[in-house]
């Protein structure tokens, strides 16, 4: 009796699992058209600016590919490439990119576009960093222990910020140094609420400008140059995984090609008066 009951319990469990799996298959048929799908791991700064919403539909129309952009920090995007979870990555952290390609995870690095990082802060600029170089500004902020919000999320922006701190020879720590652990948008809003200094890419700043009271204080410094590169993931590194290398190459060709570059050049001009990103291939 007990045995029978237990059997019926398990059999019903198995039956329902079966139902689920089959329906999952049925459900996924639509999603599963062979090798037309490209997973693009990219930074929140490009994603949140809305640039990809302009680029991807045009690319999808020109080719038969379907792009799935996943917005993460540069660090996570590179890690996804290393695991073979992405087919192509669009990131902005030179050193990491170089290591990624040298270790054979990516087949090539191609310049796509750039913009600049800017250091922003309250309008009255209590530490008077306006007009300084980035390194000078950081030294001043650190010396005054003025509130500073860091992404603290291993993103490209975060890496750049840490690189500048390294140049100053000081390690930022203390109550004044806040790590948000969030994307650029949230970090900007935290800085705004706290009337703190922070560093951001210009694109995200421009997109959020209407909601912010912070102003640009440091810009144009060479160290604040923010170049984006696109890297297709090397399928040889992941033989057991179905990496869409052809699709990745097609996307690379598109974004560095005439149409892609033109879209980048135009993007944001209508809204902000100047582009959010500057194309690097066809200027």
């Amino acid at each position: 009796m007990n045995k029978f009951r237990f059997l019926s319990v398990t059999s019903i469990l198995i039956l329902s699992t079966f139902i689920i799996t089959t329906s999952v298959f049925a459900f996924s048929c639509k999603d599963k058209v062979k090798n037309t799908e490209i997973i693009l791991a990219t930074t929140t700064s490009t994603y949140d600016s809305g640039l990809l919403d302009e680029l991807i539909p045009v690319f999808e129309e020109e080719t038969t590919y379907k792009v799935k952009p996943i917005a993460v920090g540069t660090g996570e995007a590179i890690a996804m490439g290393e695991r073979g979870e992405a087919d192509v990555i669009l990131v902005h952290s030179r050193e990491e990119e170089d290591r990624f390609v040298e270790e054979g995870y990516g087949t090539e690095r191609r310049d796509v576009m750039h913009n600049g990082f800017v250091i922003i802060g309250p309008e009255d600029d209590p530490s008077a960093i306006s007009g300084l170089t980035a390194v000078e500004a950081y030294i001043t902020i650190s010396a005054n222990e003025a509130l500073f919000v860091s992404r603290g999320d291993d993103s490209g922006t975060n890496k750049k910020e840490i690189a500048i701190w390294e140049e100053t020879g000081t390690t930022p720590q203390g109550d004044w140094y806040i790590e948000s652990g969030q994307g650029m948008g949230e970090t900007l809003r935290i800085a705004d609420e706290k009337q703190a200094y922070t560093m951001t890419d210009r694109g995200t700043y421009l997109a959020q400008q209407n909601n912010l009271s912070l102003i640009v204080l440091v810009e144009g410094d060479e160290i604040l140059f923010n170049p984006y590169r696109v890297i297709p993931v090397n399928p040889e590194k992941h033989k057991d995984i179905d990496i869409n290398y052809e699709g990745a190459q097609a996307f690379v060709e598109f974004i560095t090609g005439e149409k892609g570059q033109a879209i980048i050049k135009e993007f944001g001009v209508a809204e902000y008066g100047k582009p959010l990103f500057y194309p690097d291939v066809i200027k």
Binding site: K32, E37, E85, D240
Partner: peptide, 21 residues
């Protein structure tokens, strides 16, 4: 379900099906 996972071949990552699961 990720590509290197046991069910990676189903390509369920980043699909509505994955969300349902």
């Amino acid at each position: 379900i990720w590509r290197s996972g046991m069910l990676g071949f189903l390509k369920l990552m980043y699909t509505p099906t994955a969300m349902v699961i």
